[in-house]
Structure formats: C-alpha cells, structure tokens
Design a protein around this nucleic acid. Structure first.
Lengths: 130, 130
DNA sequence: TTATAAAATGAGAATTATTATTATTTTTGG
DNA sequence: CCAAAAATAATAATAATTCTCATTTTATAA
C-alpha cells in the first residue's frame, strides 16, 4: 500500500468521528477537506483499510455498510428509532470465539454481534410522551 | 395478513431447505412449483414473514440477505471458502441480551452473531493438500 | 351469494449501494 | 531522475432490492 493523501484524509476523518458513518455520510464530510475526492476512491480505500485491519467494516446494521476506526473487540447496537450506532463491550459474550471453535471444529477468523432495539435516549423520550 | 398460495409455497420451500438460502437461490427453487411467481412477490413475502417473526432474515453474511425458517435463538457462521452457512448454538453467548441490556440501559429487541472463517470440511481439505 | 373493501399479485421500472473500467497522475525504489 | 507500481477522478456498470400500478384474489358482512 503506497501513501496517498486521500487515504490519509479518509482515515483521519473516520478517526475523528464519534459515530460509525456510512460511506455516504463520510463522503459528505470528506468533501470539505478534499473537494475533488471521488466516491470510488472512498470505497476503494475503505475496503483496503478494512482488509488490512486498520479499520472495521460493520455489516448487517442497515442496507449500507458502516465503518469503524475502533478495531478492538467490541460489538454494535443500532437504535431503530434514532438510527444511532453504539459500541457494546466485548464483555457481553466472553470467550465466544473459543466456545464456537470448540463446539464446531471450525476456524473463526472474524465475528460481530449486531443488536437492535431502543437506546436509552429514545426509551426516555417514549416514557415522557406517555 | 391474508392467505396467499404464493406465500404458502415460499414458506414451505424455505422450511424444507437445509441451507439458508438467498432470495436469488430460493427463486430458482420456487419456480418449479410456482412458475409464474414474481421476484417482487418473493421479496415482499420474505419481508412480511420476517416482520411477523415467522422466519428470520440474516444480514451481514454476504452482499445479499439469507433467510432462515428456524426462529429459535441461534447464530450463524459462513465459510469463506465454500460459502456454506452453518447454525451455531446459542450456548456460545449465554445471557447476551440480559448482559447487554444491563450494561447499557437499552432495550434489545433483536440480535445476531455472524462468524466467518473456515468450516471443518474446508480445513480438512486444506490439510490434505499439504 | 354477492358486493365490496382490503390485500396480494406479476411485470417491469426505478432506486440504492457498491464495484469495475480507464485514462491520467502520484508515489517509490534504484 | 526514471521506470514500474499504485492510486486517482470520473463515470459506466452491476447487483440486490424496492416501488408502481393495473389486475386478481381473499375476507367480510349485508
């Protein structure tokens, strides 16, 4: 992987982003720093960064993928109301890889847990409106 | 939900299917029993059945969704070599919903774990070829 | 039963997210 | 500095899924 200014900007933008953006959202933010960047360049780099375990691609949340600069083991929750994506501690499923490998004989290379439901903020909003 | 012959055939076909087919694959099988069925009808019904918790939609495996007639709590593994989808016992992550709800204050309505790697068959094939 | 409203269908157009193509530009190692 | 490899922008192409709409089927109840 050779250096490229565009890749650097993509990575920095993702790192300074608290949410777990889609390519679409990221593209909007990127355009401010790098107005001529192409959508193909964004996708190409996101895939490359994910293949090299520099970032993580999160699938199964919505129709489009989300991207996460946090590569430590953790999981994800999407609120069905506000659509925000939250990190969930890996502690909720201790030794899940080992247990799976032992019970199946398979080799687990990747895994993710995706939760959905209502986040705390939205639950409170619903209570208030009752 | 009113009765429809097409929905019945879709459900029966899915139930008699050991794999976890994509809409594409299912469509091919369905055409034998119901040659005039439309792809839109298939998607419409799969979504409806999933919304009513009669079947389960599995996302995050590949670019297309897979569908599962087994609605009991369990997880999924996709082999990166043969692309087969396997069921994984819910035992690998005991109390994962309760733990997540307690540590976040969120309400969890759905969750799935998606694993990927190499299945037993493919691991053995690789060993043999060495 | 039969009329009617609601639901479902098939066909194909439309949409969305993503990937592929290609001519040009940038990076890097000798 | 130069050639080869890698990356880019622009845009065409693709794949999966949803939408539209005219027609048919199903459920309801007079």
């Amino acid at each position: 992987m050779n250096y490229s200014r565009q890749r650097e900007v993509i990575l920095q933008t993702l790192k300074s982003n608290v949410v777990h953006p889609t390519a679409e959202y990221l593209y909007g933010v990127l355009k401010e720093k790098e107005p001529n960047i192409s959508l193909a360049t964004l996708y190409r780099n996101l895939n490359q960064l994910a293949e090299n375990d520099i970032i993580k691609k999160i699938d199964g949340l919505e129709s489009s993928s989300h991207y996460d600069h946090n590569t430590h083991e953790h999981y994800h929750f999407i609120c069905e109301k506000c659509k925000r994506v939250y990190d969930i501690s890996a502690d909720v499923a201790p030794d899940v890889i080992r247990k799976t490998e032992e019970s199946t004989g398979f080799l687990v290379k990747k895994h993710d847990i995706v939760f959905s439901g209502l986040c705390k903020d939205c639950l409170e909003q619903i209570k208030e409106s009752n």
